[in-house]
């Protein structure tokens, strides 16, 4: 009998947070899982959407544009969940991580794309927050909904909510 190929394991992750530290965790796990041969799905929703966005302004209505200003930019603008201090915390952690040769968040995210991690924006939160598909970086797949995520999650060995 021919040897059967083992079934490819998979990881499905919701990334709701836009915090610097939580995004670090999300991308380290995602790149690690991809390196271990797993199929990886990352579903970005709400505050997590900025992690896959280019540094472009967004928003159609007045409120949407305001959100685009106060929560604008790209992944490099994310602040730690503690010790934010209006950007000081981000500077401090970037400095400390640089001293220890840890990759930046942007590098880790781009590495994840290179490793074939599948990234999706949540269509509903994109609509609410007025963040269009065109504002995403290259490599992000077409937006999906919770049904798609659940289909991936129920087949995955590991499900995470970050």
């Amino acid at each position: 009998m021919p040897e059967e190929e083992p079934h490819q394991k998979s990881l499905a992750m919701v990334v709701m947070s836009g915090d610097f530290d939580k995004l670090f965790g999300a991308f380290i796990i995602a790149t690690g899982a991809a390196a271990m041969g797993m199929e990886v799905t990352m579903f970005f929703t709400f505050w997590g959407l900025r992690a896959i966005k280019k540094n472009v302004s967004t928003g159609k209505t007045f409120l949407g544009k305001m959100l685009g200003v106060v929560y604008g930019g790209d992944i490099s603008k994310s602040n730690p969940s503690k010790f934010s201090f209006g950007g000081m915390g981000r500077w401090m952690f970037n400095k400390m991580m640089g001293n220890h040769n840890v990759s930046t968040l942007t590098e880790l995210r781009d590495l994840a794309i290179d490793l074939g991690v599948n990234m999706y924006g949540c269509q509903m939160s994109m609509d609410v927050m007025e963040i269009p598909r065109e504002s995403f970086i290259d490599g992000v797949k077409e937006p999906v909904g919770v049904g798609f995520f659940l289909m991936k999650a129920q087949d995955a060995e590991i499900q995470l909510f970050i």
Partner: peptide, 14 residues
């Protein structure tokens, strides 16, 4: 040398 998690594993895999 000098690489931290998860890069050593990622580089071996690549």
């Amino acid at each position: 040398k000098g690489l931290l998690c998860p890069l050593p594993m990622v580089k071996v895999s690549q």
